[in-house]
């Protein structure tokens, strides 16, 4: 059997990730040190968690720009209810429930009221953060039980593995299986490939999309819990701008912005790439503006690359035909 290396964006991203790791460890002293690797993992944990939901959404051909606002609203509710005497477990549940509800509202507006997801979630991006502001104002709540604040930060034993990593890995495997090995995942891909054919295949497209929106809200709620404890802070402007990083990570990971195409491991590689580049630039003491510029370039590359790869393939095919 001949092994053919397929030139696709998912495989290229993995190569790029390894390249970045090698380059970073050669140009900095401690890129691959345990503390830094641990940092990369924990810095990307909310993005990863939200990306696990958003990937399903982008694959169905929709988008959610409100995930970071959901994170903030959930986080504010967590802080507010804990500060008002709710036990911590209840405060956590409230955070996740609020996130789930926000996701459901997005889904309902997109599918039942038939507003475009871009428009709806630009609206709820402002709305959810606005409500968070209404609840906490400029207050910050940063008194939480040590067990929980340690959780986002501490490592397992003396290793460099942050405690949140096993959870993320479990989620990654679980959602990877959900996307690639279950009827639910197949239907998600099918809807993105052709909503009309999906209807003729007996898929309840509206219900499916509502589920995916709600699920994305749920994941954003969980990200809200992690964010709150990792920074030991509940405030209304938590996670501002994270939605762009989440979407960048998905696109970097080879998810098609037009829907119907995407792999879970591609997205995980995308998140790690974004996180690694960020960490590399930080270690090189390159300032924040430049880091944003690099993120922007990466995002543009991820959108342009699949198109360019296809063009190159077509050109190659033409050349082969001529010879």
């Amino acid at each position: 059997m001949k092994l053919k290396l397929r030139l696709t964006w998912d495989t290229s991203i993995l190569a790029l990730l390894v390249t970045v790791w090698i380059a970073a460890s050669l140009t900095t002293d401690n890129f691959l040190s345990s503390i830094n690797v641990s940092q990369i993992f924990s810095n990307t944990s909310e993005i990863t968690i939200m990306a696990f939901g958003v990937i399903f959404l982008i694959i169905t051909g929709e988008i959610d720009l409100s995930v970071a606002s959901i994170l903030a609203l959930g986080s504010s509710m967590l802080g507010w209810s804990y500060a008002h005497g709710a036990p911590i477990w209840l405060a956590i549940l409230i955070c996740i429930a609020v996130g789930t509800l926000c996701g459901f509202i997005n889904g309902f507006l997109v599918t039942k009221v038939r507003l475009g997801s871009l428009a709806v979630t630009i609206g709820t991006l402002a709305l959810y953060r606005g409500i968070a502001n209404g609840i906490l104002g400029t207050n910050t709540i940063n008194e939480f039980p040590d067990f929980w604040t340690g959780f986002g930060f501490d490592t397992i034993g003396t290793s460099f593995i942050p405690q949140s990593l096993p959870i993320i890995i479990l989620f990654g495997i679980g959602f990877g299986l959900l996307l690639h090995n279950t009827p639910f995942g197949r239907r998600t891909l099918a809807i993105g490939q052709s909503p009309e054919a999906a209807r003729f295949a007996g898929i309840n497209v509206i219900k499916h999309k509502i589920i995916v929106f709600t699920f994305t809200g749920f994941m954003s709620g969980i990200a809200g819990v992690i964010y709150t404890f990792r920074f030991s802070t509940a405030q209304a402007d938590n996670g501002i701008g994270l939605e762009l990083l989440v979407i960048s990570a998905c696109l970097l990971g080879g998810v098609s912005i037009f829907g119907g195409i995407g792999t879970m491991w591609g997205v995980i590689a995308g998140v790690l790439l974004a996180g690694s580049v960020e960490s590399w630039l930080t270690l090189r003491e390159i300032n924040a503006q430049w880091r944003t510029i690099v993120t922007g370039i990466l995002l543009l590359t991820s959108v342009a690359a699949p198109v360019l790869i296809n063009k190159a393939k077509a050109a190659k095919a033409r050349a082969e035909n001529k010879s």
Partner: peptide
């Protein structure tokens, strides 16, 4: 437009309505 998912594989298309036949427990 209606019958097939054009970018999906032949196998993915044929199994689309028969998940219960190709599924294990989960």
């Amino acid at each position: 437009q209606q019958g097939l998912f054009m970018i999906a594989g032949v196998n993915r298309n044929i199994s689309m309505e028969s998940f219960d036949r190709i599924k294990g427990k989960l």
